[in-house]
Design a protein around this nucleic acid. Sequence first.
RNA 1: GUAGCUGUAGCUCAGUUGGUUAGAGCGCCUGGUUGUGGCCCAGGAGGUCGCCGGUUCGAACCCGGUCAGCCACCCCA
Length: 423
Amino acid sequence: MAANEPLPGTADIWEPETLDWIELENNARDVFHRYSYSELRTPIFERTDVFVRNLGNETDVVQKEMYSFNDRGGRSLTLRPEGTAGVIRAIAFRGLEQGDEARVFYFGPMFRGERPAAGRRRQFHQIGVEAVGNDSPWMDAECIAMLTQYLDQLGISGSRVMLNTRGLPADRPKISAALVEYFTPHAPAMCEDCQRRLSTNVWRMLDCKNPACHDIALKAPNIVDLLGDESRGFFTRVCQGLKDLGVSYELAPRLVRGLDYYIHTVFEVTHPGLGAQDALAGGGRYRIELPGGKKAVEGIGFAAGMERLLMARASLGLQTQPNAEADVMVLSLGDNALLPGLQLAQQLRLDCGGLRIKADFSGRSLKAQLRGANKAGAKVALIRGDDELAQGSVLCRDMTSSEQESVALSNLAAWLRGKLPTA
RNA sequence: GUAGCUGUAGCUCAGUUGGUUAGAGCGCCUGGUUGUGGCCCAGGAGGUCGCCGGUUCGAACCCGGUCAGCCACCCCA
């Protein structure tokens, strides 16, 4: 049995669950198209350096979570751990002229070698968007509004938009210095990680979840207060745009995020139905250097975890109801009826589109086949044995009322369409 | 990588202080009409008790290891 289990952190997804996934995808297409974003599909694996150069060599994702391997030519390849790097690579490959913009969305599997937990898989799926080639705060507001509209359309209520800014790179030394100055005297009382972060990455001390650290971080200097005029002005406009669009958000002065490329706006959307990993989606504005000395590209984007969207919906009781396996069941009695049964089912699929038609080739007793039809949720069972074959008719049984009538083969499609008007 | 909890039939789970052929409900199959489902009745199939080793006269139960799942830390989607 163990030999057939999927690998840790991976899963087989069956109907009706697949219907929920389709729901996620269809709504994404619907909403994002309205904002003039177009669908982009990039490869699931890339050269390893695509991710290393984009995410930053020091990030946890690059350091210890990537599924990397050498192909037969000895190149180092990596299963994508996130979507942005591949999208940026694709946009750069196609070429983006000055002043041009690209607005795209994508969805698909991502891979990270982490220890699985609630809401965290090794193969997980994201729906993401990227708007590249713009530097406007209004784009940030629109992007976040698009995300909340998507959540609304999925019926996911109760989520919270947490918003912060990291400012421009030029603001960072001043802010870092202020944070080091604040945290240094408190360091002995903080966790090991934070003591290390004091020299490696002070910003992360702001969102440490260790209770003692958290209390100390609460009184840390506010990033927004230390921003230069340009950064502050940018952030102010993002907030203003959101207010104007009626998107409610909360300022989260200690929200930092893990990837190096973020500038200005960073945000996360959390949901109470998720457990410890409570982020439904996260994103922000970024500036990414392209290889070959080309100008850096700037953009705004986010990624939402599909499994987490599903968890949030489930916590609200929003799972899709399973379809009946079949609307119509074709039952064949005796060996002579099997081939005609195959033909009949096929013909009905052509004549009555929209109906699910399943043929029973088991050769079992009528009783057993009817039991099967009942189990499949069929509304109509079409029964044919030697008698019906001889007469050129089909015995049509209404599985709900238990009434049945003999219908000539030539009238069957019309009879079915009348009986089950979804066709 | 670290900690806790869990692992018995297809599914959800019982299994008393270690004691013979390991149980229930649901599901499945067959029969109760030579060709008629659901409800009911009768019968039946199905389990190396995650795996390996140890203790013992004897292990689903105790001990060690290992694998897997869940959840948490971490990180984030």
